[in-house]
Amino acid sequence: MELVLIGDTPLASAAAIPTFETGPDALLIDAWHIGFVCPLDLAGMLAIAYWASAAAMPVTFRLPREPNAASYLQRMDVLRQMPRRTRIVGRIPPEERANLRHRLLEASPLTEANVNDLAERLGSLVTAYYPKSAGPAVARACNELLDNAVEHGASNVGAFITAQTYTGTTTGSPRLELAVCDNGIGILSHLRQNPEHQHLTTDEQALKKAMKDGITGTSDKRGYGLSDLIGGGRKHGTIRLHLRTGAGEISVTATSRNQSAEVSTRRDITRGVWAWLTHELPAQA
């Protein structure tokens, strides 16, 4: 089976995740026609590759034709983080590694063992990028996403994280992007662990429910992670959170004045949860 990635931000926009139910096979991730890639594309590629690898499928990764795109994947450690024995097709660009710790977080597995180190790194990146007043609030929002992923998205298949700040040259406006893609049980199964939410039957219902305060799959008095995430980000600009799980997707956009959420049904199935957070400061900041 093939995952064909074409154009700009393919996994974040149009590309459908292949279905693996057809039995043991092989996975080709074809990035030949890829253009601009965002953190969700990077973390998503790795999540899919590891899912296939865990199902004993050989993985082949076809590098982009465009040298800059291939170099970017190299710089963001996507090639290094691919599952062992992944066959890389194409010319592997040389590793030219400037220290950009203040601007990006390379693609990395997210585990219980390294989550706190990654949170420290992400926190430093965010507070270095933002003005003093906004930095801690946005860092707090980002790190709520990390806690959520390790608390609820743990699996032996792996979760992946990557983040970057943009000056606006390539993206149109300065912003922060963070993606966390896990291969855990997903939001519906997680919520259904709590007897109060066993009536939920669809991913779309579960996504809507998960955005409300106090909704948790645990028996503890919690379940505020996602709303705290939105609350931290919206105080200082515009926060957008896209969550995919199973056949469902929710897109939340919030500023200090407004919040809107749109739930939709996808034509593909996302294992676990894919989260993509973007944050922009108001224009005058």
Binding site: G123, S124, E151
Partner: peptide, 11 residues
Amino acid sequence: LGSFPTTRSLA
């Protein structure tokens, strides 16, 4: 515990 203490497990 860190400059950006994050997770429930760390807590």
